[in-house]
């Protein structure tokens, strides 16, 4: 289409797809299909049940309420983050996604931001519910600051880890199974077998153990941030980088 005398078919000067639009589109995909909406509704119901149970118990304080709520939310949000990536590949709507924005890396980042934004919304909801529980129970707000950090880390870590697994495997059941088996069971088990009984080696590769170091009242030797950083490298950065490369070069069929 570059024959002389032919008007140019493509205008290279028009503005490209706005990144903000991509984030809005990906956020909308979190709720506009039955699968994603179902998981979200299930999460809502579960958070309500926890809240009602917590209020009727009478002794649950803010920090333990928040940790129960946020741990539940984090696991569900991880599944939603996984589906945000993998559903497009199994449903093959990725064909239109990548013809609308062929710079795939922008789509991947937009998806990650959409998943994190949902995580932030869920965090605020958990916060309000935890405050409600503690207020109804007449409990104090002890350890509120630590509890906030712990909850935010829990949600953020699990969402990103699910997202990274999804990029790597591009398959919903595979990513969900890997997400729940590898970092919590298989790898810690293997590390436990080859390391000293007294060593804390498992903490460094097991996200749940590293995250538990942030639970209010936990005393840990040394900074809790280092094991979490190592876990993030192993379970988020490594699979995420490999997965992003895979998405970049994959043939979209």
């Amino acid at each position: 289409m570059t024959a002389p005398g032919v008007p140019n078919l493509i205008d290279p000067q028009v503005p490209g797809v706005r990144f903000g639009s991509l984030v809005r589109v990906e956020s909308r995909k979190l709720t506009d299909s039955r699968g994603a909406l179902g998981v979200l509704i299930a999460l809502g119901v579960l958070l309500l049940i926890i809240t009602i149970t917590g209020m009727s118990n009478g002794t649950i304080a803010f920090d333990s309420a928040l940790s129960a709520l946020s741990a539940t939310a984090a696991n569900f949000l991880a599944i939603i983050a996984i589906m945000l990536v993998t559903a497009e590949w199994s449903q093959r709507s990725v064909v239109s996604t990548f013809t609308l924005e062929p710079r795939r890396e922008r789509v991947v980042v937009a998806k990650a931001l959409a998943a994190l934004a949902l995580g932030a919304v869920a965090f605020v909801v958990c916060l309000l519910l935890a405050w409600l529980i503690s207020a109804v129970n007449g409990e104090t707000m002890d350890h509120a600051g630590e509890a906030l950090v712990s909850a935010a880390l829990y949600i953020g870590f699990l969402v990103l880890m699910g997202f990274a697994f999804a990029l790597l495997l591009l398959n919903t059941p595979g990513a969900i199974v890997a997400f729940f088996i590898l970092p919590t069971l298989l790898v810690p088990l293997l590390v436990g077998l080859v390391s000293d009984q007294d060593s804390d080696a498992q903490t460094w590769v097991t996200p749940s153990m590293a995250l538990d170091q942030f639970t209010p009242g936990t005393t840990s030797s040394g900074s809790p941030w280092l094991p979490l950083l190592v876990c993030a490298l192993v379970w988020i950065v490594l699979p995420g980088a490999l997965g992003a490369y895979r998405v970049q070069v994959s043939e979209v069929k």
Partner: peptide, 9 residues
């Protein structure tokens, strides 16, 4: 590919 749409939408 007319079959490459998200069926749930």
């Amino acid at each position: 590919d007319a079959s490459a749409f998200h069926n749930g939408r």
